[in-house]
């Protein structure tokens, strides 16, 4: 008999469409999973990351397709009451980002200008880095530069 734990496990197999080394559960975008009494329908609450992120529709389709394989009809809804934040990324998720060469996000600053804290270089581990641009290949990533190993790198923006 299928239960909610199985659904969470299945969702762990789904990669983020833009950063495939991290899965949707570790990214923290799954707020909740509910199975109805008949165990035929599942309601998944999904948290958008950046508002303009085009991956959200892909995530929705992926979740629906995966749960269909489990014989479930999935209702994937966007949650607006709870906001996703980079603090929802799990320890495993942070490690997955680092292994893909993306510096994990720092703590979102309370000041007007975030990202002042230098990121740790994902190549050599140095803290001797600068922020080159707050904008990178996707909305959630910024570009840093390491003064020690002289390499550019991507960093996940704290949100």
């Amino acid at each position: 008999m299928i239960d909610e734990h199985d659904i969470w496990q299945a969702l762990r197999e789904l990669p983020d469409p833009e950063i495939p080394t991290i899965n949707l559960v570790d990214l923290g975008v799954i707020l909740s999973v509910e199975l109805d009494a008949g165990r035929r329908c599942a309601r998944v609450l999904l948290l958008p990351t950046f508002n303009g992120c085009p991956a959200i529709e892909l995530m929705r389709d992926q979740i629906r397709a995966r749960l269909e394989q489990l014989g479930l009809e999935a209702r994937v809804e966007l949650a607006r009451e709870v906001r996703w934040s980079t603090e929802r990324i799990s320890a495993a998720g942070r490690a997955a980002l680092a292994s893909a060469g993306i510096a994990p996000p720092g703590v979102p600053g309370s000041t007007l200008i975030p990202l002042i804290e230098p990121a740790r270089c994902p190549h050599c581990g140095s803290r001797h880095t600068t922020l080159e641009s707050a904008f990178g290949p996707t909305l959630c990533r910024a570009i840093g530069h390491c003064r020690d190993c002289q390499q550019p790198f991507e960093q996940f923006k704290p949100l």
Binding site: F50, N51, R83, L112, A134, L159
Partner: peptide, 19 residues
């Protein structure tokens, strides 16, 4: 709903201010 939307949007706008 508007207060929630503002709270979501304003976090991203901080990066615009930096720019």
């Amino acid at each position: 709903p508007l207060a929630q939307a503002a709270a979501s949007v304003i976090r991203e706008e901080r990066y615009h201010l930096l720019h």
